[in-house]
Design a protein around this nucleic acid. Structure first.
Lengths: 209, 209, 209, 209
DNA sequence: CATTAATCGAGACGGTACGTCTTGTCTTGCA
DNA sequence: TGCAAGACAAGACGTACCGTCTCGATTAATG
């Protein structure tokens, strides 16, 4: 019989500390930005010692990821009855997450560390990327069930383009996102339905060319 | 009459130093990564003093941007004769830039600083985003001239989705980019032609819905 | 009741670090001189971080003073049985301190900062000047007890002239100090006894004038 | 015939520059102290380029010495008719020089560099120490001529003690110098006359002991 | 109840990068 | 050639941050 959950010995960790860390990280990210998010500042704001943080997270990145990004998993928006409606709602959800001050600031900074931190990369994939891809897939499956699409499209490309579009719009082009959901949904909708009919009827491409 | 080109006084800056800085930054980024790109290392590698760097760039970010990102403007790929071909080529160009070791590492780290550094943001827009958008527009204009599209689509959304897709594919999903150009071009091509016909003939949408 | 000895909180400072700093400063002063005594060199030699130094001393001067000058208080030489003997011994002690490589190099450089650094000036007075003056006074009191002098002379002037003579001899005139103790002691002895008798018998000055 | 004063070629140096340097050094020493006396500050204040300074002086020390210390040679005070009077006047001259803000600040800082800069040491000796010693000797020779002393005492020791006393009084003990001339002159006078009579009449020491 | 072991806040530690400053040299164009 | 302006290489300065460690006190579960 394997020993699991080795009986903890000694004083148990206080959940108060976990909460204080998360709270402090989010507040500091929103108030002062990532640049002034130091471990000492977090400990000071949370009223705890630095050791209590490092007992939970091995690095600053891990802490920030856990406190500001993790748990922000995208919920799949409710069925609106149409692919266009679902995609609009999906875009709104992504935008709302990426415009959250704490999460977005942290996200962009952590992105750079992914290349050299396999653990962080793994967390990103498991916690954010995969669930989001699954959410996208769910929206597309609905459209298939509804009859709007004959079959599932290239989900990976769709996922990259849809999420990537919001990312690029907000943080590279830095445009106003207020009418992005409709415009992006229209674009994506067209792409999906066109590739769908093309895939079904390869002899009749979208247009003669 | 305004006085322009104010007569320079004193010893002029040496272009040798500018080149040495750029070269050192790129080498160090490729060799050691952003984390070990220190100002002292740059100065040492370039055989110059730190003051010579700070005389040119106010911050490390500015230096890295100028040395590793600036001048990496995307060239518009040659006309391949078809929208699909052009988009495939465009994706290849973007991928090749984003997989360049120096540029990509730097880019992701700088991204996080854009939010709090208006100067950096301005540089990004002027140097990278706008030229790239213009390149995308040129590809689309070719398709219009060719007759593949009736009219120009929503360029901003296309730009965000196309570039964002590559970004997301490489750095968020971390997939292999070898077949991305074709898959992405197919997706984008479909979207463009579908929205195009839809816009031209609103009574006959791509499919019944 | 006043609270004193406020309960120390947090990790206490390690005396090992204090000793390492002191040792490193002295070694570097003796080996390389004041000019090459850098904070980084001290930290490196001591095997500690620079922060550990700045946690203890606000400035380089303070560190050097504490490490190389403080604690070098002049011991009063043992009673030799005569004023002349005591003064000779006193001169020897002063010379040995001022020719100590670490202390002397530091001393001269710190001297210049006294004018603009009240804290340093205070330290100098308390730690060096006052004890030395007291040592001089003790030697003179012995002579009074012995009967060599009727009463204590102008101690301030004696102190300035005796110590100042060594200082000037070594660092301004840069003479060899080997026979200075006897010559200086003879001079001072004469001055003291002459002023003494003059003070006792003002009608009969040392000589007619 | 030896070639002397090698015919200067090219544009002659402007004395305006020499004066501006000297003036700037003295002003800055008096205003801001030695710590803020930088070569750039001197050049800026003087309205000249740094090269013009380094064309004249090889190092900062040399410049400071030349501008603030050199030319401050002690004039021998006029004969007052008595040794006591002459010594009082001599002390006053030394004090007035050492309390000059520019000279004194510079002097103390340069002192520390003497140990490692033979050129500076040579300048000190030639320019300051020797003339001062000669001035002291002149005062003593007057006393011999006057009959106050039978023969010249140990001039080196006297010189060290007299000048050193003022140095120590002002910069180590940091006492008020207002009554120092009289007190020091009385002390020195007694010393000189006592050693004098002792040397003349060794069987009758200053006092019986 | 006493022991044990891990927790807690506080803060010192080694290491290292930052951006600024200073020194002494060099390079422009002008006089 | 001298000069003002200012760039240059070298490197020290004092600050800040990270992740680790140490202190005395606290807090359950175990013996």
């Amino acid at each position: 019989m394997v020993s699991r959950d080795p009986q903890p010995v000694g004083r148990p960790r206080e959940s108060r500390v976990d909460q204080a860390i998360t709270r402090a990280v989010r507040e500091l990210l929103a108030e002062a930005g990532y640049a002034r998010l130091t471990m000492d500042a977090v400990a000071g704001r949370a009223g705890i010692g630095k050791a209590a943080i490092y007992r939970r997270y091995a690095t600053k990145q891990e802490m920030v990821f856990a406190a500001a990004v993790h748990g922000e998993a995208l919920e799949v928006p409710a069925d609106t009855g149409s692919l266009f409606g679902d995609l609009t709602a999906l875009a709104r959800v992504i935008i709302s997450h990426l415009t959250n001050p704490a999460a977005s600031t942290a996200l962009l900074h952590l992105l750079g560390d992914i290349a050299t931190d396999p653990t962080l990369a793994e967390s990103f994939t498991t916690t954010l990327i995969e669930p989001e891809r699954e959410g996208n897939a769910e929206v597309l499956r609905r459209a298939v069930r509804r009859g709007e699409l004959e079959q599932l499209p290239d989900i990976d490309v769709f996922h990259a383009a849809f999420g990537g579009a919001v990312l690029s719009w907000l943080f590279l082009s830095r445009h106003d996102p207020h009418d992005l959901p409709e415009r992006l949904a229209r674009f994506a909708c067209a792409a999906l339905q066109a590739s769908d009919s093309e895939a079904q009827d390869p002899v009749r491409p979208g247009r003669e060319w």
